[in-house]
Every structure is written in C-alpha cells, then in structure tokens.
Amino acid sequence: MTRDRAQYGFCVFLAAVGVLVLVDATTIGHASSSNDPIGPRPVPILIGALLLVVAVLYAIDVARGGVGTEEDGEDVDLKSGIDWRTVLLLIAAFGLNAVLIEPLGWVISGSLLFWGSAYALGSRNHLLTPVIAVSLALITFYGFAIGLGVNLPAGILQGIL
C-alpha cells in the first residue's frame, strides 16, 4: 500500500495553527482581576499546546501507516485524482464575487458567481447557463433583499432594480 505522504502537510498545518495561537496568546494583555482570576491567556495557551501535541501524534500515526478515509458521496468518484483545474476555477469565481459584491452589487456579482462556477464544473451551454444565473440572482435579490429584508447590496444598479 502506498503511503499517503500528503497527510504530513496537514500535520504541518495543525502545528502552524498551534504556533499562531501560542504567539498570539503572548501578545494578549495581562488583565486578570479578582472577578476573573485566570484572565484571557491560559485557554489559548492550552489550545495552542494541544494543537502541537496532536500534530505530533498525527504525524506518528501517519508514519505508522495510518490513513484517513477520503469522504465519499453521491457525486464523488474517488478513483479519479483531484481535478485541480476545476477547484482553482471555482475558487476564482468565488473570490471574484467577494471582490465585486459591494461595488457592482449582488445581482451582477451573484450572476457571475453562478456562471463561473457552472463553467468550472463543466457546463458549456452559453445560452442557458447565463440565463439561469441572471434569473437566480434577480429572484434572490427581489425575494430576499426586498421581500424578506435580507442584507444584499444593490451596488451600481441602485435605483434601477
């Protein structure tokens, strides 16, 4: 059986989070009082230290041949490797929405998000996909923002919608 060495990467991630929590804990001001004898520091120090311990134990488990079972699902085909192109395109579509949502408004950024994600996931219907994207964005904007009072920005379409 081939070892899943990428797991060490996750151990490093855990250790890094542990170090981050510990370093941050040292910068927390010392503010204990009779009301709160231990103050805000011990808990982060405890969690940071435990993260380091678990990172080491995890690495030992991996070294002894331990593997985690990858999550299965209805549409998941674990026999194929990770398709990084799809993942990166999805992340890009998601990031674009985060940047554009306030300046352009939800209707435009949300449409782009849906279209971009569908493209990333393999949709090549250049008529139907944008139509669905824009209708979803408009329906959610009118239904949620105007109908139910949910916070969604109108952006540059303010006054038009």
């Binding site: 398709d83 990084w84 799809t86 990333a120």
Partner: peptide, 8 residues
C-alpha cells in the same frame, strides 16, 4: 470544492 475535485 471536494465534489468538484472528484466530480463523476
């Protein structure tokens, strides 16, 4: 993201 990486 996980499904996208392994989409059937």
């Amino acid at each position: 993201l996980w499904v996208a990486a392994h989409l059937r």
